[in-house]
Simulated scan of single mutants.
Amino acid sequence: MTLKRTLLTFSLIFSFALAASAQQYRVLVFSKTAGFRHQSIPEGVAAVKKLGQEQGFGVYATEDAGQFTDENLAKYDVVVLLSTTGTIFNDAQKAAFQKFVQSGKGVVGIHSATDTEYEWPWYNKMIGAYFLTHPRQQTLRLEVRDKDHPATWHLPTNWLWFDELYEFRDINTDIKVLITADETTYEPSKGNGPDHPMAWYHAFDGGRVFYTALGHVEAAWENEAFLQHVHGGIWYAAKGKMPK
């Protein structure tokens, strides 16, 4: 019996080691909210975990900002800010997050990641913009402006989409816009004009950042095109892979 238990223990350790070695990279999904809380967060977390299982990367999800330490963040290649809102970090956690990015790691912001940390200028530049307002949920034409990115390779130039459509302020002029909203195809609130950004990426402070404003509605997390969009953003943030 003792020998059998020993063999079982070694078998489990070996299995865990194989699983860990099979992971291309590790992703920390963070969905803490200190303001509005989106109903789609559970669907989003589940969908990213499923992507990890299907695409061979590790996923750990938490709403504990205490995970943002130098030692813990060193385990991960990408932090996904999934519909976070409000002030979610203290000073020590902010410093750890900055070091994470400066060490060459990646960040993915989804939907209300731009409705987060309004008093932190570094965060504004990093995520790319701050949320301003949104009209009622509507269907519109999204224009895919750049198809040479893993988050948009698969998308049509004209993408008909239903969502809560964010409008922005304090937009970082260094972001590289991937998708824009055609404001002539829906009723905006204040609007951002003909170059209304809805998804973008950029290199920032040593790291890589991808953001998409999509993903408010639960149904988005069952949409294959959107899931590929998110997966491409995570892959870019983790690997920095772009067409030559």
Score class of each variant (00 low, 15 high):
71 E>G: 01
80 V>A: 08
130 Y>S: 11
72 N>W: 05
81 L>Q: 06
76 Y>T: 04
114 T>D: 12
68 F>W: 12
117 E>V: 01
66 G>I: 05
97 F>T: 15
60 Y>M: 01
68 F>R: 09
91 D>V: 05
136 R>V: 06
87 T>V: 10
81 L>I: 05
107 V>I: 15
124 N>M: 10
98 Q>K: 15
79 V>Q: 07
50 K>G: 02
86 G>R: 09
114 T>L: 06
81 L>G: 07
74 A>C: 03
88 I>F: 01
133 T>F: 00
97 F>W: 11
110 I>W: 13
85 T>V: 10
137 Q>G: 13
82 L>T: 02
122 W>A: 13
133 T>D: 14
119 E>C: 00
134 H>P: 07
53 Q>A: 14
120 W>T: 10
50 K>T: 14
64 D>A: 09
84 T>R: 03
53 Q>S: 01
118 Y>N: 10
77 D>W: 10
77 D>T: 05
65 A>L: 01
83 S>F: 04
62 T>G: 09
81 L>V: 06
92 A>K: 14
118 Y>M: 02
66 G>V: 05
128 G>F: 10
113 A>W: 00
68 F>D: 08
71 E>F: 06
74 A>N: 14
78 V>W: 04
68 F>M: 07
109 G>P: 11
102 Q>F: 02
74 A>G: 04
106 G>V: 00
64 D>L: 05
113 A>L: 01
124 N>Y: 00
116 T>D: 13
80 V>P: 04
137 Q>W: 04
104 G>L: 08
78 V>R: 06
104 G>V: 11
99 K>A: 06
72 N>E: 15
80 V>G: 07
95 A>G: 01
119 E>H: 07
132 L>F: 14
66 G>A: 14
58 G>W: 09
111 H>R: 09
117 E>K: 00
129 A>P: 05
124 N>K: 15
125 K>V: 01
105 K>D: 06
134 H>G: 10
49 K>P: 00
98 Q>W: 01
